[in-house]
Nucleic acid binder design. Sequence first.
DNA 1: AATATAAATTGTAATGATTACAGAAATGGA
DNA 2: TCCATTTCTGTAATCATTACAATTTATATT
Lengths: 140, 140
Amino acid sequence: MITEMELIKSKLQKKEITPTYIRLRVLDYLEANKVHPTAETIYKALVKEIPTISRTSVYNTLNGFLEKGLISSIFITGTETRFDSNTSPHHHFFCEKCGQIIDLDIECSYFKKGYVKGHKIKELHGYFKGICKNCIKKRR
Amino acid sequence: MITEMELIKSKLQKKEITPTYIRLRVLDYLEANKVHPTAETIYKALVKEIPTISRTSVYNTLNGFLEKGLISSIFITGTETRFDSNTSPHHHFFCEKCGQIIDLDIECSYFKKGYVKGHKIKELHGYFKGICKNCIKKRR
DNA sequence: AATATAAATTGTAATGATTACAGAAATGGA
DNA sequence: TCCATTTCTGTAATCATTACAATTTATATT
Ligand SMILES: [Mn+2]
Ligand SMILES: [Mn+2]
Ligand SMILES: [Zn+2]
Ligand SMILES: [Zn+2]
C-alpha cells in the first residue's frame, strides 16, 4: 500500500520537482485543505510543526509549484493571492458574508471552444461574488 | 447643446457626488480612455494638465466613485487594480502578448438566473487570458 | 569519511501599490 | 468677512510579496 506522503512525493516527481521536506509539506497542506489558503495561512499552519520554516520558503515553494503547473492561484479578495491544488480550469464563488471561496463545477462554452470573439483563450478566470447557500439559510 | 463636461457633471450629480474639478477630470479621463487604466496611469495623465493634483486625490476619487457605484474595478495583471467607467457586468480578455484588456460582450446564463448551485449571485468577475485577435495576426 | 559543488532554506531588507492621517486650501452660507 | 465643512495635498505607514546574501543541507567525487 502507498502512504499519503508517498502519493504527494510522486506528484512532485511527476512535475520534476525535487521532493524536499518543505515541498512535501506545502503540497500536502494544499491537498488536505482545499479552501484556497493564502501563503500566510500556509506558513502559520506549517510553522507550528516545522518551527524553522521561513515565510520566504513558503512563497518560493508556492511560486515554484505555480511555474511547474502543479498548483494554480486566484486573486479574489483584493488583498492576497490564494492557492489551489486544483489546476483544472474551474470557477469560484466568493461569499461576501462568510468569506468562503467555493469551487464551482460549471462549464463555459467559450472556454470549451478555445476562442472568444477571435481571441485565443489559454486561461479561464471566473468567480461570482454574492451570498452562499449556507449564509442564505442562516439569515432567515 | 450640452458640452462634454456638462454631461460628466450630470453623471456625478446623479450619483450624489459633488462635482469638483478633480472629480470631473478623473471621470472624464475614464470615459475618454476605456482601456482600464491604473490609478498611476490616470495620475500621470492628469498631472500634466493639473500640476498640483496629488496621487492621493486620484485614489480617493476613484474609491469614492467605486463606493457610489459610478465605476467598477478589476484585478487582472496581479499587481495593480484597474478602473472601468463601465459598471454593467461584463467579461474581459487579457492578452498576454500586448497586455491589452479588452471588453467582451458575451453572456453568462448563471448570472442571468441570479443563482449558481444555490448561491445568490451579486457580482460577476470573469476574464480570459490568452492571445488577442491582433497579436495572432501579427505573429504569422 | 572528507571534500567539493550544487541546491535548498533562512532572515532581513527592499519594493510597490494602496491607505492613513494631519495640515492646507477651497467652498459656501450666515 | 467669519466660521464650518468639504476637499485636496504631502508624507508616513501598511502589508503582501520579492530580492538577495548568507547559511545550511544534500549530492557527487575522491
Ligand atoms: Mn478552486
Ligand atoms: Mn471593462
Ligand atoms: Zn457564506
Ligand atoms: Zn494582444
